[in-house]
Simulated assay, not measured.
Amino acid sequence: MRLSEPKEVIFPSGKLNLHGFIHKPEGDGPFRAILINHGSEHPKSGKLIAQPYVDRGYVAFVPHRRGQGRSSDQSEYIMDLIGQEPESTMGRKFVELQETHQKDVTAALSYLKQLPYVDINRIAMVGGSFGGIQSVLSTEKQLGLQGVIAFAPAAMAWSQVPELQLRLIQAVRSATIPILLIQVENDYDLSPTRTMAKELEKVNKPHKLLIFPAFGKTHAEGHAFGVRAVEIWGDAVFAFLESVMP
Rank of each mutant, 00 (worst) to 15 (best):
M1Q: 03
S4D: 06
E5Y: 09
K7C: 05
V9N: 11
N17I: 04
F21M: 13
E26S: 08
D28I: 11
G29A: 10
P30W: 09
P30R: 03
N37S: 10
H38Y: 08
H42W: 02
Y58M: 04
V59S: 04
A60R: 07
V62M: 12
H64D: 08
H64Q: 06
R66W: 04
G69V: 10
S71N: 06
D73E: 15
Q74L: 15
Q74W: 08
S75H: 08
E76S: 15
I78W: 07
I82M: 01
I82H: 00
E85Y: 04
S88G: 07
Q98T: 06
A108M: 10
S110L: 15
Y111A: 02
L112P: 02
K113W: 08
P116L: 14
P116H: 09
Y117E: 05
D119V: 02
I120G: 09
N121W: 07
M125W: 14
S129V: 08
G132L: 02
I133N: 07
Q134E: 15
S135L: 03
L137V: 01
S138T: 15
G144F: 10
L145A: 13
G147K: 00
V148N: 01
A150V: 08
P153M: 02
P153Q: 05
A155C: 11
S159D: 13
E163V: 00
L168Y: 00
L168R: 00
I169S: 07
A171M: 01
S174I: 09
P178V: 01
L180G: 12
V184T: 15
V184S: 14
N186G: 14
D187I: 04
D189Y: 06
L190G: 11
S191L: 06
T193N: 12
T195N: 05
M196N: 04
A197H: 15
V203H: 14
V203A: 06
P206C: 03
F212G: 08
A214E: 15
T218L: 01
T218R: 15
A220Y: 04
G222M: 09
A224G: 12
D235H: 10
D235N: 11
F238G: 14
E242R: 12
V244Q: 01
